[in-house]
């Protein structure tokens, strides 16, 4: 298989190598712009402390956003959906298999009808 060929899916297409080449050039341009800027600052002074509107910094573990909270806004907005879906995840394998076969049966019926 030609590694530099454009991937054609029938409707869509894209060429990853060309994108990577373009990204490399764009990164060089962005880096050159970045280099022209001022680099200095005062390490170890007040200016390198996190800005918290003058409040003391809480312990790291208290302000850590864990994986479970990463999508908080999403789960909060879709609470009506998640409140129904989460309890269905019982952790019991046979329950999951039942869902799997049930949904597969419905899909086969729909496909068969169409």
């Amino acid at each position: 298989m030609d590694i530099v060929a454009t991937l054609v899916t029938g409707f869509g297409f894209w060429n990853p190598i060309i994108w990577l080449a373009v990204l490399a050039v764009a990164l060089v341009i962005a880096y050159l712009i970045w280099l022209t800027g001022e680099s200095s600052y005062k390490p170890g002074t007040e200016q390198t402390k996190p800005y918290l509107s003058g409040n003391p910094e809480p312990a790291k573990q208290d302000v850590h956003v864990g994986g479970g909270h990463l999508y908080w806004g999403f789960t909060e907005a879709m609470r009506g959906y998640y409140d129904r879906i989460v309890p269905l995840h019982t952790g019991v394998l046979t329950d999951y298999l039942l869902w799997f076969f049930g949904i597969a049966a419905i899909l086969i019926l729909i496909v068969g009808l169409i």
């Binding site: 022209t36 800027g37 001022e38 390490p43 200016q47 390198t48 402390k49 996190p50």
Partner: peptide
């Protein structure tokens, strides 16, 4: 102006 300002990297 931003390009001429200090580029502060926080300690954390």
């Amino acid at each position: 102006k931003l390009m001429r300002k200090e580029n502060i990297v926080p300690e954390n």
